[in-house]
Design a protein around this nucleic acid. Structure first.
Lengths: 110, 110
DNA sequence: ACTAACCGTAAGTTTAAACTAACCATTAAA
DNA sequence: TTTAATGGTTAGTTTAAACTTACGGTTAGT
């Protein structure tokens, strides 16, 4: 699996609102599948499918306890997205500065 | 527009591979629409539609120069996603530590 | 051994959104 | 004042993926 695939998986995974809802449910700590599915708009199998996508993107981890599957936030996926965004951060800040300077010059003209 | 909508727009925008390709084309600096569309797999109108989504998500800015529309990376959208990810960062690192400690204990048992 | 709880997967359907084609508006150049 | 270049939007189609239903496999308890 090449390095560029990593952030594609992660950003694709968090691009879906249902998957974000699942991800956010794990914000306070680990949960089983039934726990995650409880109160959600979609069925439990749908949740399972989303969990798989999130897991492949390294945004969550899974461990089994008896018959339960316990899911948890994985820092790796978060790190991957952060790293991707950092690629654009310098350029974006630079753009912002140039724009700010232009606006300054326009103020002086008035 | 409520605050929670912000990161939904941004993550949804970067969730699409074609939009990421556009976003990445702007990494090196501002470009016009024809420039962005050149060499891409989809038509120019498709690019225009994607640019609109990226703009509404504050991931890019737009200015006009004559008949050209010049697009550029916007730091605000990046900041919004970073802020969202930070919500999970502490929890995720905590999980990671607990797991690492467990693995340490298992090593000692051997 | 039987039953119940938990969860993953496969098959098939539904739906949201990505896409193209066509059109129109604006600006610059000839 | 044509002509060309640029790009936004609309309508309609296509397609990818989200979803449900049904099923089977595993583990814990009785």
């Amino acid at each position: 699996m090449s390095a560029t695939v990593q952030y594609n998986l992660a950003l694709n995974a968090l691009g879906d609102p249902t998957r974000r809802a699942i991800f956010e449910k794990l914000e306070k700590g680990p949960l089983s599948v039934v726990h995650i599915a409880k109160g959600m708009a979609v069925s439990r199998p749908a949740v399972s499918q989303h969990l798989k996508v999130l897991r492949e993107a390294k945004l969550i981890t899974m461990k089994t306890e008896g018959t339960r599957s316990i899911y948890n936030i994985d820092p790796e996926g978060i790190r991957i997205i952060r790293e991707y965004l950092d690629r654009f951060w310098d350029e974006a800040l630079d753009n912002f500065k140039v724009l700010a300077e232009k606006q300054q010059r326009n103020k002086h003209k008035k």
